[in-house]
Design a protein around this nucleic acid. Structure first.
Lengths: 332, 332
DNA sequence: CTGAAAGCGCTTACAG
DNA sequence: CTGAAAGCGCTTACAG
């Protein structure tokens, strides 16, 4: 049988109130009494039931998190950043994934409605924005990670996507690459729009505005990257560089170029985005725009925890810096 | 203010008992009454508090999970498999990571002691075995994933590591590779010992028993893989194949061989283990022993859920099949 | 400094 | 078919 506060009270010869006091060291307890109680607690290995404490206090000391899927290394790293921060603050992490689309979302919603957590961290899944915004407007503390361009209605942690795109462009221009192809992710995403805007602007300023045919909408997968290169090849368009908006698709681009018999970086320079581990396993290794992914997760968690502690959530997005990391796919 | 079962009861003009009955559709409620209550529930958007239900019922409908770190793609995939299964069964996933070693473990232990979950799924971290075994022996439902060779004291889900190692050896022998090097993970791990045993046995049977110098203890990292190749090169040992016990270190091996100026697979054939995504992004793509990683997670979750439903946990490990996947790193 | 009692929001015998 | 009451395991005014 589970040992309860009542058992401790009886063995220590005090009331449950007193036990509770030493548990939460409220002071105001006689030193000797406290010692006796503590001794019983230790002897019994008593630990208060989280459920009961939660019910009495009206909180769970747990944070809910929703991510589309852990299959993307970017996501895992975000989650790891969150987990590290929550652990330090002694909060639990209730993780929900969205591999079954709406069904998954409903599951998450049910959990939130049942007050299984005090606040929520979200990497918004397809069609999930309305629901999440709704939660926030009803007063639940919410922090969104990497706004997907769905607007600033929620407290958000993001990175400098625009500057990142621009840095990729500048690097290519410095290398004398005049005819790049840009392989995006889905154009609805805010991060994609920003990266594209930053990249395009630099080329425009350099007197080489991007033509529509230089922009290919991708899907962030390696297969998509390979397919894009093939397509570009068949179209007969000349290109001396590819800016792929994540590392996975950049890896696909590398493979596609290799298959076409051209050389990286001599014939074609390739830049990715994210700087996840795959970037150092390709051949050549990938020049890429580094995102401080783990810090983004950690920052979001800190913001949420601060909100749970009473601080107001910032209205302005918190934006972390991206940095260009140069490797063999652009410079031999 | 949060709406409670009491609010529903009042508005519907019935007792909380009755509301509870329709909530858990216990039948035995008058049709008309039930309809009226349900109508109020819907109108108020009432959802029972998970905490309160948990307290009353003595369970949390939550599963705790401990993994060393999400930085390893293998781990993320396990977690995804777990998450998918729990979601279907409407269980929550309380995820704990172990990036701070003992401190993290203590945190997890505290959570378990506070009965924050009904059972536990574990990929045992460094020095975590004793604690986990203890939990199991005290009666907490525990399922271990990928026993690290620490013994069969716990219900476990694993894969055919021995057969996997053997299949790698057979493949290399068929290719005529007589002098392989084996790059292991840490030798304490059960999976490493098994893969090694399977591999060594096949070479022994073929009349080419492995010498000690053909076995290099690695650490499952890419850097370790590259370093091992360098070391082997300096030692002057001739080798025509490398069996690396995970894909990450195999990727490092590939890089190391390339740097040494030799060709894969012509000069050296390389085989990995796991079949995580990096295996298709290397050049050449990696021949590897595929583990059904996600299924391992899903299976472990199912076992635990069955245990929570009253079924006894199997004493014998549940072992899933590995399969050799042949790609360019062994066959051009 | 200490304790009896009410309350957190549910469920479940028990009685009718 | 329905409800009053006790109980799950805590915390916290309130009173002493």
């Amino acid at each position: 049988m589970r040992v309860t506060i009542g058992d401790v009270a009886v063995l220590a010869g005090v009331s449950k109130t007193t036990v509770s006091r030493v548990l939460n060291d409220r002071g105001e307890v006689d030193g000797e009494t406290a010692r006796r109680v503590q001794e019983v607690i230790d002897r019994l290995g008593y630990v208060p039931s989280a459920r009961a404490v939660g019910l009495a206090l009206g909180r769970t000391s747990t944070v809910g998190m929703l991510v589309p899927s852990l299959d993307w290394p970017w996501m895992s790293e975000i989650v790891q950043g969150v987990a590290d921060t929550l652990e330090v603050q002694k909060y639990g992490l209730l993780l929900y994934t969205c591999t079954r689309g709406q069904v998954s979302l409903d599951q998450f919603a049910a959990s939130v409605a049942a007050h299984s957590c005090d606040g929520v961290l979200v990497v918004v899944p397809e069609n999930g924005l309305g629901y999440v915004t709704d939660l926030y407007e009803r007063g639940l503390p919410v922090v969104m990670i990497d706004d997907r361009g769905f607007g600033p209605a929620l407290p958000t942690v993001a990175c400098t996507n625009l500057a990142g795109g621009a840095s990729a462009a500048r690097h290519l221009l410095e290398l004398g690459r005049r005819s790049p192809i840009v392989l995006t992710g889905r154009l609805e995403y805010g991060c994609v729009q920003e990266r594209l805007a930053g990249f395009a602007q630099v080329y425009r300023s350099a007197g080489r505005p991007l033509a529509d045919e230089q922009i290919i909408e991708g899907d962030f997968t390696a297969a998509g990257g390979r397919a894009a290169v093939e397509m570009a090849g068949r179209s007969g368009r000349q290109f001396d560089a590819v800016f792929a908006m994540n590392d996975l698709s950049a890896a696909g681009v590398l493979a596609g170029i290799r298959e076409s018999g051209r050389m990286v970086p001599d014939d074609v320079a390739v830049i990715g985005f994210d700087d996840v581990e795959v970037a150092v396993h390709t051949d050549p290794r990938l020049t890429t725009v580094h995102q401080p992914i783990r810090e983004m997760g950690a920052t979001a968690a800190s913001m949420l925890l601060a909100a749970l502690a009473g601080a107001p959530l910032p209205v302005e997005p918190t934006v972390l810096e991206t940095t260009l990391v140069v490797r063999g796919s652009t410079v031999p």
